[in-house]
């Protein structure tokens, strides 16, 4: 691989562009491929096979050839509401697990850049903040403030936009009250029951990193279930 190709790959990764690396295993030539375009030169006749790898989000050698295809898809987006202590550990875990984190918190003293370097922190109320984040059914929401003023509008947004994972921090009692409010706001039982509350897998830990671990473990579990 040429250094120039490596640099281009890193640039594409940081701008969250989807692409593939095509390598001719015989001569070591490699090329970056963008979905929907035609592959260049020696790779041009494998255009259909390359698209197939993309669709199945897989890597591999094209049958009866010496061409290796490695696809890079966009990381899953995770929106955290509440720039709290647990969120700092979630950010750490998410880095190695390759989730793309955005944090929403209208409270400026929490949502400081110093507490969350390199992370998109939106210092606004959820309604306005979601205007700045592109979301879809492959987005996850982790609500951590357990303050209905902040969490509820985010949970409502996530339910309406059919996020694949929605979790909310808080005790059983807090969650019961939350469910009651969502029911009064017109959400169905199925929708309300899809919220993971109290959030996380029961590991027994009480410290901020332990709770973050239980949340991120549940997120990974639910990702592969869908």
């Amino acid at each position: 691989m040429k250094i120039k190709t490596l640099e281009e790959i890193l640039k594409k990764k940081s701008s969250k562009t989807e692409f593939a690396i095509l390598t001719n295993l015989e001569n070591g030539n490699s090329e970056i491929y963008l979905p929907g375009t035609s592959p260049k030169g020696e790779f041009s006749k494998y255009s259909d096979e390359i698209e197939k790898f993309f669709k199945s989000k897989k890597n591999g050698v094209i049958e009866n050839s010496e061409i290796f295809v490695e696809t890079y898809i966009k990381p899953i987006k995770v929106v955290i509401v509440g720039a709290v202590h647990i969120a700092q550990y979630l950010v750490d875990f998410a880095k190695s697990l390759n989730f793309e984190i955005s944090i929403i918190d209208p409270r400026g003293y929490f949502a400081s850049e110093q507490r969350f370097p390199d992370i998109k922190v939106i210092n606004k109320w959820p309604k306005e903040a979601f205007e700045e984040i592109e979301t879809n059914s492959s987005t996850a929401l982790i609500a951590l403030t357990h303050d209905p003023k902040i969490d509820d509008p985010a949970l409502q947004y996530a339910l309406k936009n059919k996020f694949y994972y929605i979790g909310a921090l808080g005790s059983k009692k807090t969650h019961e009250n939350r469910c009651q409010r969502l029911s009064e706001a017109g959400f169905t039982n199925d929708e309300i029951n899809s919220i993971h509350g109290p959030i996380g897998i029961k590991l027994g830990g009480k410290s901020a990193p332990e709770i973050a671990l239980s949340i991120i473990a549940q997120l990974v579990l639910e990702t592969y279930k869908k």
Binding site: L6, L10, K13, K57, I76, Y164, T223
Partner: peptide, 18 residues
């Protein structure tokens, strides 16, 4: 659903080359 698979080895490769 699959998350993207990236253990950031290429990022490290670039650091080594630098």
């Amino acid at each position: 659903m699959e998350n993207s698979f990236d253990e950031k080895i290429l990022d490290e490769a670039n650091d080594w080359i630098k």
